[in-house]
Structure formats: C-alpha cells, structure tokens
Computed example of a mutant assay.
Amino acid sequence: MPETSLRPVAVVPLIEGETVRLRPLREDDVPALVENCRDEQARRFVPVPLDYTEDDALTFLRRTVPDGWREGSGHVFAVADPADDVLLGTVGLHAFRATTADVGVNIGPAARGRGVGTAACRLLIDYAVEGLGLRTLYWQAFVGNVASLALARRLGFTLHAELPGFAALRGEPVDVWLLGLSARTGGPEPREKL
C-alpha cells in the first residue's frame, strides 16, 4: 500500500458563495492548475517551478494539499465557478500560529479582473474567522506585485511593513510587503505610517 493510503483523510469543507465556490482540489483540475501556474504573473510572484508540469500539479494535489489539511499546516481550496465547477484558481491559509495564519491566493489569468479573487478571499476570511476562530490574518505580497497589494487592501488588509529579503523565490531573496487584518475589530489593524 502507498504511504498516503495509511494516513487519515481530512475532510475539506465546501463553501458556497454567490459568484465562487471553495471546494477540494480534484484530479480533473490538473490541466487548469498547470495553466494557472505557468502564467507569467504566477511565475513572477508565486513560488512555483518555472516549468510547472502535470507531475508538479499531481504532487501538489495528492501530497502537499492533503498533508497540509491532515497536519493542520495549510488549508488550500480550489476556487471554482459555481455554474460549471471549473477551476479558476486556488486560495488558502498557511503558516498557522496561535490565532493567526497567512492568506495565499493564485487566480488564473482567465478569471482575473472579474472579482473572483475578492469573492474567494472573502469566503476564506469568513472561514478563517468564523470556522477556525482565527483573530488576525496576514498577507504577504512580493514587492512589485501591485495586483496582490490592491486585492489585499480591497479586503481591508492594512500595510504594516516592507521587509527586505524576507522571503525567497527560487533560491533568491525577495522583498515583501506585509499586511494584516484583525477580526477582533472587524477591520484592519491600526498601524503606524510607513
């Protein structure tokens, strides 16, 4: 028996919204996942292999995502169109700490500019706060990713800092904008002017 078949399976909730659905990733999502991760914006700002393949997608789908749910280290959802259930992107929570986690999102090029990222992240935030009891969410965007910064701000995240060399992308240090959103007040956390 393969090692993964001995591990308990985590139940990924289905979260229905008016314009998007958050659901478990499936094997029929692989072609769209590959296309989304090969997109120039994803290759520039998401830590995925430059030559993202079907094998990369299957490893993500069969190992990385289920292990994250099982171990409590990541809750990744497929973002799908509720009309036809086609994959539009992914959204998730990562880097869980006592009452916080980081938000991550990768919306495919065909779905950008239609409010898909905003709708998916709102559902994810509700799940994080109401379902998991998290009190603060963080958003990291590589400096230069103005679309990610704009999305975070639309969602109510407040810019806290620009951190030089805080992250790595394919082995190279990358500067990061760090934003936060507090559930305690129902809005962004206060911050000092940068």
Rank of each mutant, 00 (worst) to 15 (best):
G156R: 13
E189I: 01
A101Q: 02
A150T: 14
F60Q: 09
Y138W: 01
E40L: 14
R97C: 13
S148I: 04
Q41E: 09
G113P: 12
V65N: 05
A80T: 04
G104D: 04
E192Y: 12
L134N: 07
P190W: 10
K193W: 11
P47I: 01
P8T: 01
P190N: 10
T4G: 03
A101M: 01
T19W: 13
G115W: 10
M1N: 04
E172Q: 15
V48C: 14
Q41L: 06
L50D: 12
R23W: 13
G180P: 04
V79Y: 05
R135S: 06
P31Y: 11
L33H: 11
F45L: 10
I15P: 02
L50V: 10
P31T: 14
T64H: 15
R70Y: 01
E18D: 14
P164V: 00
G74Q: 06
V11H: 11
T118R: 15
R122M: 01
R112W: 03
P8F: 00
V79P: 00
A57T: 08
V105H: 03
P24L: 07
A147K: 13
D175G: 06
A42T: 11
V105G: 06
Y138T: 01
R122A: 06
S148M: 09
L87M: 09
H75N: 06
T99V: 12
E189F: 07
R154S: 14
R184Q: 09
L149D: 10
A42S: 15
A83E: 05
T136K: 08
E27S: 14
E130M: 00
L22G: 00
L6A: 09
V48Q: 10
A42Q: 09
E16P: 04
A95G: 02
A183H: 09
D29Q: 12
V176W: 01
G17C: 06
D102P: 04
G131W: 04
L87H: 06
G171S: 14
L151P: 11
V146L: 08
P109L: 14
A111E: 06
T99A: 15
L155V: 06
V116T: 13
A32I: 07
I125W: 08
V129I: 09
L6P: 01
Q41W: 02
